[in-house]
């Protein structure tokens, strides 16, 4: 049997759909509403959801890409994309080998991970002061 002789069947759009996408979009809408009204941010952990094969990609298509994208390098890269819906961020953390370790939808004006952390600022300030004192001498 040659590989060419294996018949290829195109699956229809609904073949594997079990309705998770609509449910997710509804949840996103309600979280976005909360952000808009009460300035409350929210998160959805995509790893904890029983998505059917293909639904992840469908969600990507449904949310699309917006104006902002950012990249963080901290024990592996992280990709932060504002989706087509402002306030809805897709945050994907990778490890150094390029596997996804966390995959989140963050509904916020700015994702938490982008903000500078106080501890890092303290350490950075200390470094800067050391440098200034060295320059002064």
């Amino acid at each position: 049997m040659s590989p060419q002789s294996i018949p290829i069947h195109a699956l229809t759009e609904e073949a594997h759909s079990i309705g998770n996408i609509r449910a997710l979009l509804t949840e996103i809408a309600s979280l976005l509403d909360k952000l808009d009204r009460n300035n409350e941010s929210g998160m959805i952990d995509l790893n904890s959801l029983p998505l059917a094969p293909g639904e992840y990609e469908k969600l990507r298509l449904a949310l699309g890409r917006g104006e902002v994208s950012a990249r963080i390098d901290a024990i592996g890269p992280s990709e932060i994309i504002e989706t087509h819906y402002p306030g809805v961020w897709w945050v994907t953390h990778y490890n150094v080998e390029g596997d996804i370790v966390a995959d989140l939808l963050e509904i916020a004006t700015i994702p938490e991970i982008i903000k500078s952390q106080p501890e890092d600022m303290h350490a950075g300030l200390a470094r800067l002061r050391t440098r200034l004192s060295e320059v002064a001498e």
Binding site: D45, N47, A74, I75, S78, H93, A102, E112, S116
Partner: peptide, 20 residues
């Protein structure tokens, strides 16, 4: 960095099935 650690904790929370 603390940010790297926060990322690590985000991954941990996800695998511990805790709210993100």
């Amino acid at each position: 960095s603390r940010r790297a650690f926060l990322k690590f904790c985000t991954a941990l929370a996800s695998l511990m099935a805790l709210p993100p």
